[in-house]
Amino acid sequence: MNRDKKLLTALAVVIIAVVLIGEVLAYANVREYNANVTYRYEQASWSVSSNGSSSFNFVISDNGTFTATDEYIIYYDETYCTAYNSTKMTVIGQMNAQEYYIDQLIKTLAYKGVTDITVVDAAALAEKLTGDLAETDCTTALIVVSGALPATVYTGQTDDLILQWLDNGGRLYWSGNALGRYYSTENELFKVSGYQELFFGIECLNGEIDDNKVYEDVIANNYRYVLSLSNNQALYGVDGSNLSNCLTLGYTDGQYSSIALVQHGNGMICVFGGNYTDYQRADLSQVIAAGLCYCSEIVYENSGSVIRTTVTGTAQLLSATDNYAGYIYIGGYFPSFGRTFYS
């Protein structure tokens, strides 16, 4: 083989090797991440490690008396009508937009350590909520992205199952349309009057028709940055200024915010503004993974590099008996790992 052919062979082999090594790396799951937080007295010892070149963020939130969620259910029933707009969300594969949204949300939550998730249809949802009512303190979270609750749990009445469940401690994560504006059956969407008062006690939802992007940070807290929040839509978002026990975070126009967590009885409603987008879904997963509630306050935050090593630290807490949620994640706006540790 002459010199030219040898060089051409070498070049071709190098190119093929790059592609094949990349193929192995893409599927071999070579990245290893670990995190730990140990609460002891008025301190939290934490550590985070990576076998690659990574950045980390760590936030400890004081959650007052709000107990952590221990299971998650997602409502999805393809036979029931929906009220969401997904035109700006990419969908790949044979799924419809809502199914794809939920599929992606479950996978994202999985690498952030939230794995106890069940998808339920309208009938199973009613059964589950009814079962939760029998318990004294419900710690179940329900995620609804359909834009409309099914008639099995909500019909616009004050004694609806969903409202009783929230009063009993249920946690509702909501996106897709104005919360409570619609309920659905298999054949029809029904509009509800006075829906805002049912869920919030007052009118406080942004019912604008347009996209309603907002361009300022919520400055009352630093969650926008510590959780690397991205969704700057406030359509259907909450104006928390006249609500007691409300935490707004993310982005705002000064009135409505992209994310709001509001107390409802012993439970909580968390509203994500805007139509379906990949950003909205990313923020939803971050807020869930971080274990936030309507009374969360940042007591400690840290960030930095963790490059092929373990980084450790100690956080000074306010008290030994408070209710803390410590969330460590790697990757910032491009996350690839997360874990939450409760005191």
Binding site: G22, L25, A26, S53
Partner: peptide, 19 residues
């Protein structure tokens, strides 16, 4: 696959931690 290869290089040899 090409991107994964570059990612492998970044993770193994560089200090590019923030994307």
């Amino acid at each position: 696959y090409c991107l994964s290869f570059f990612d492998g290089i970044i993770n193994a040899f560089s200090s590019i931690d923030v994307f």
